[in-house]
Each structure stands twice: as C-alpha cells, then as structure tokens.
Amino acid sequence: MPISTAIFWPVIAQVALIHAIYFLMLRRRYGAVRAGTAKASDFWIPAIEPEPSATVARSLINQFELPVLFFLVCTLLYVTAGVSHAVVAIAWLFVLSRFAHAYIHVTSNRLRVRQRLFVAGFVLNFVLWIIFAVHIAGF
C-alpha cells in the first residue's frame, strides 16, 4: 500500500468510531424505553434524555467537532501529496486519542481524564495542520 493512501486507514477508523457510538446510543435509548426509565417521546428534546444515553449523545456530538478538522486535513494532505510516515503516525495517534476519549465519555465519564485526552487530540490535530501549512508553503 502506498504511504499516500495509508492516511485513509485512520480516517476509516475514526468513521468506525462514529458508527459505533451511534449504535451504542441507539442501544441505550432502546434500553431506557424497555426499562421504563424513558418514553420514546423523551428523545424529541435531548434535555430530558436519561443520563446513560445522554452521555453517549454528547459523545456523538463531539465526533462532529474536532474530527471534522481531522477529516479535512487528512484529505488536504492526500490531495497535495503531503502524506508521510510521520503524518500517518500522528493521524493514528489522533484517532487513538478519540477512541480513548469516547470510551471514557460513555463509561466512567471522568472529566479530568477526558479533558487530557481531548487536549492530546487537539494538539495532534493542530500538529497535522502545521505540517500541512509547512508542506504547502514549500519549506
């Protein structure tokens, strides 16, 4: 596999995470309705959603914030032939930070740990953007 297309494996992994969180949210919502702790109509207004599914819903929202910038920078690096082994490694580290962040979010939801994982992912994403900027500047 050429290194240029290797950038898409972390992208695919991030997309798989998003799908897994959707599945988990559906399971928790159906579980809440079956257990009688929620009615189907409760999900019309997320403010009254039961906590177990609300944390998953919030985690899902997180996957459409910082990861959107990740998807874009990976695509731009590919289009401009800026993919390298280092870029792919950083992309994988970003995705691993997102998996860990999502896991903490939907399990213990320990804010201090979640925050550190978010910051790690934020920094890794920023590094990818710096690499892209340096690449297109021709340095």
Score class of each variant (00 low, 15 high):
56 V>C: 08
31 G>C: 11
64 F>P: 00
37 T>V: 12
15 V>A: 15
108 S>C: 04
101 H>T: 00
52 P>L: 11
104 I>N: 14
58 R>H: 11
29 R>M: 13
78 Y>E: 00
88 V>P: 01
31 G>W: 07
115 Q>L: 10
77 L>V: 04
45 I>D: 12
43 F>V: 09
58 R>D: 02
40 A>Q: 04
117 L>A: 04
84 S>D: 01
46 P>G: 01
100 A>F: 12
43 F>C: 11
9 W>T: 02
74 C>Q: 03
8 F>L: 05
7 I>T: 02
26 L>C: 08
121 G>S: 10
48 I>K: 06
75 T>Q: 07
6 A>Q: 15
59 S>T: 15
81 A>C: 03
63 Q>L: 15
23 F>Q: 07
61 I>R: 05
86 A>R: 12
104 I>V: 14
69 L>M: 12
120 A>M: 14
76 L>H: 13
86 A>C: 08
119 V>G: 04
116 R>K: 14
83 V>I: 10
122 F>T: 01
119 V>K: 07
29 R>C: 01
115 Q>Y: 15
107 T>N: 06
43 F>E: 08
42 D>Q: 00
32 A>E: 08
81 A>T: 11
69 L>G: 15
19 H>L: 14
8 F>A: 00
121 G>E: 09
18 I>A: 11
67 P>E: 05
57 A>Y: 13
24 L>S: 08
4 S>K: 13
78 Y>Q: 09
100 A>T: 02
41 S>V: 06
36 G>T: 04
31 G>V: 00
2 P>G: 10
105 H>A: 07
70 F>I: 10
40 A>L: 03
72 L>C: 01
102 A>Q: 07
28 R>M: 05
103 Y>I: 12
49 E>T: 13
88 V>Q: 02
94 F>G: 01
32 A>W: 12
83 V>D: 01
130 I>H: 05
38 A>M: 03
43 F>S: 02
48 I>Q: 11
2 P>L: 12
107 T>R: 08
71 F>K: 07
25 M>H: 13
110 R>Y: 07
45 I>H: 06
89 A>E: 10
48 I>Y: 03
14 Q>M: 13
36 G>N: 12
47 A>F: 11
48 I>S: 07
45 I>E: 14
102 A>W: 09
79 V>E: 03
127 V>C: 07
120 A>S: 09
2 P>F: 13
17 L>K: 07
73 V>S: 01
12 I>Q: 04
112 R>Y: 10
63 Q>S: 09
21 I>P: 03
134 V>H: 06
132 F>W: 15
4 S>I: 05
108 S>Q: 09
61 I>C: 05
33 V>G: 05
87 V>F: 15
56 V>G: 01
132 F>P: 01
75 T>E: 04
109 N>F: 06
60 L>C: 00
108 S>D: 09
76 L>V: 00
75 T>G: 05
42 D>V: 07
1 M>A: 13
51 E>L: 12
5 T>W: 14
126 F>V: 01
13 A>M: 05
83 V>C: 06
53 S>G: 06
67 P>T: 13
55 T>L: 10
15 V>G: 03
123 V>W: 10
90 I>V: 14
119 V>Q: 08
114 R>S: 11
74 C>D: 12
23 F>I: 04
115 Q>I: 09
57 A>V: 03
35 A>L: 08
121 G>L: 13
